[in-house]
């Protein structure tokens, strides 16, 4: 056997080994069409190398006549394998993009609903306050209620500000989740109660909570949770403190 024959023997053996690895070892690596095109490519190359080996080692010339025709399919098989790979990859990217768009649409709808409901409510309250002020110009008795009306308008503006702040926070959470760390519950509650009392200083607010230190794992948005609970409790609670 001459040098070329020996080289071709190794070429054919290595290609057969590669083909065997692809057939035996690869499960779920590619989609079926991509895998089939890769296997077809390896079969064509193996055939070409086998023909070369038989020819150059002087064993047989039987495959020489068809060798060149089969060999011309090899670059096409390489091309087809890479094309199907790109195609499947593009399909996957498209599916992911569609998912992102659908999610973004759902969030837009959610923000729209949130804004529509809350802003309408705030505007209605301000409009109501404005009507009362207008009427009070003609009715001196109603002028006594003006401080309460101004307070109502101030509350509605604060609600509007909080709504904008909450929507901004929601949007930020979606983009990058806040990191979790150890927080002292007592200090959070103290700060939140102080803030809420300042917002509703005209109300007689008494808030009690345990004095002991409580450590918990949470993110920086925990104070917003307590703030929302307290603000809602103040808005909707008509009871006088005992």
């Amino acid at each position: 056997m001459n040098l070329i024959g020996i080289i071709d023997f190794f070429v054919f053996t290595l290609t057969l080994l590669s083909l065997s690895i692809i057939l035996i070892g690869w499960k779920n690596q590619f989609s079926i069409i991509t895998k089939l095109s890769l296997i077809a490519m390896m079969f064509i190359i193996s055939f070409y190398y086998l023909s070369n080996f038989l020819e150059w080692s002087g064993i047989s010339d039987v495959l020489v006549n068809v060798e060149d025709y089969i060999a011309s399919l090899a670059p096409l098989a390489w091309f087809f394998f890479l094309y199907t790979f790109i195609q499947k990859k593009s399909e996957k990217n498209l599916r992911e993009n569609q998912k992102d768009i659908e999610e973004a649409y759902r969030y837009t709808e959610f923000y729209k609903d949130l804004f529509t409901h809350d802003i309408r409510n705030i505007l209605q309250n301000i409009l109501l306050a404005n009507n009362i002020i207008e009427q009070s110009y003609h009715n001196q008795q109603k002028l006594e209620n003006l401080p309460e009306i101004y307070e109502l308008i101030k509350e509605q503006i604060i609600r509007g500000e909080n709504l904008i702040s909450n929507v901004t926070k929601l949007s930020e959470i979606r983009k990058s989740p806040f990191p979790i760390h150890t927080i002292d519950l007592k200090s959070i509650l103290e700060k939140t109660v102080e803030k809420v009392k300042k917002l509703y200083e005209h109300r007689n607010i008494i808030i009690q909570f345990p004095e002991q230190t409580l450590l918990l794992k949470s993110n920086d948005l925990l104070n917003n949770v307590f703030e929302n609970i307290l603000v809602n409790a103040i808005i909707h609670n008509k009871n006088e403190p005992h």
């Binding site: 071709d8 070429v11 290595l14 080994l17 590669s18 690895i21 779920n28 991509t34 790979f85 990859k89």
Partner: peptide, 30 residues
Amino acid sequence: HLCYISSSIMMFIWTLIFFKKRGGNEFNRD
């Protein structure tokens, strides 16, 4: 023929790398 043997060696290495990392998520991309 030297090019062919080099090509088959590279292809063999490529399939080996795939075989070794079989089952990894990184290869289920398409």
